[in-house]
Design a protein around this nucleic acid. Sequence first.
DNA 1: ATCCTACGATGGACAGAGTCCAAGTCAAGA
DNA 2: TCTTGACTTGGACTCTGTCCATCGTAGGAT
Lengths: 136, 136
Amino acid sequence: MSDLLERLRERGWRMTSQRRVVAEVLDGDHVHLTADEVHARAAQRLPEISRATVYNALGELVSLGEVKEVSTDGRAKRYDPNAHRPHQHLVCSACGTVRDVHPTGNPLADLPPDQRFGFTISEAEVTYRGLCPSCV
Amino acid sequence: MSDLLERLRERGWRMTSQRRVVAEVLDGDHVHLTADEVHARAAQRLPEISRATVYNALGELVSLGEVKEVSTDGRAKRYDPNAHRPHQHLVCSACGTVRDVHPTGNPLADLPPDQRFGFTISEAEVTYRGLCPSCV
DNA sequence: ATCCTACGATGGACAGAGTCCAAGTCAAGA
DNA sequence: TCTTGACTTGGACTCTGTCCATCGTAGGAT
């Protein structure tokens, strides 16, 4: 079944029903749920799961590198399980929908040394904003 | 004196002591303050200025296009008065410092049509993350 | 210079997102 | 099956931001 569950088990993540449900909710492509959305979906299967547990599990998945946090709008963070293939995000300014996209080129290469100001740069995050087909 | 103040006056922005102080605090280069930081600095000069007023003024400056909102970390938004020259941001993952940078190339051009999924894209925001010289 | 009034400021209540903690529960190894 | 350290719970708390009724004032009118 789920690759994510497999990997977590292999890495010795203590499996509880709560963690399983959170991981299952996040599994898949083009998933960009907020913590509250994850909680709501998890609660459909496990009604008494608490918000704190969801936050804990999400935080651990992020630490493990299995999920990426995405702040698209300065409001709730979204959690993106597609952490293993580098990609960027396309965000609808109206409805907030998020899509994974794969631009050509490497944005890191576009930052010349004299623009790095002594920073040790580790990543470049690109967010494309516009209106999605349903919102035009 | 301040270009920003000049422009605001010309555009008929009703000038109050509070608004003046907020605009003065924001004036300058490489300024990326949070609303609370703006409030703290404004309060040094005008002790009774309220948080609501700062938020109102910031919101209006953003609507007027004189200031850009930047969410670098999913926490407090930062306000960037350098709204007239397009630029991107370099953020220290440790201390949160933000620098304006000017990458070469146009990130919008790096998103091929088949990666636009019917969106009408209006901008591309690039955030470079890494460690600043003081945090390495 | 003074008056008017619509627009702006105030602060306190409220809301949304997230963190923390003490106490209870349970996964998984012995 | 037992044990125990790790996990979960829910409520209190923090931080960021918004809302609103009331009060104050900038700046045009006189």
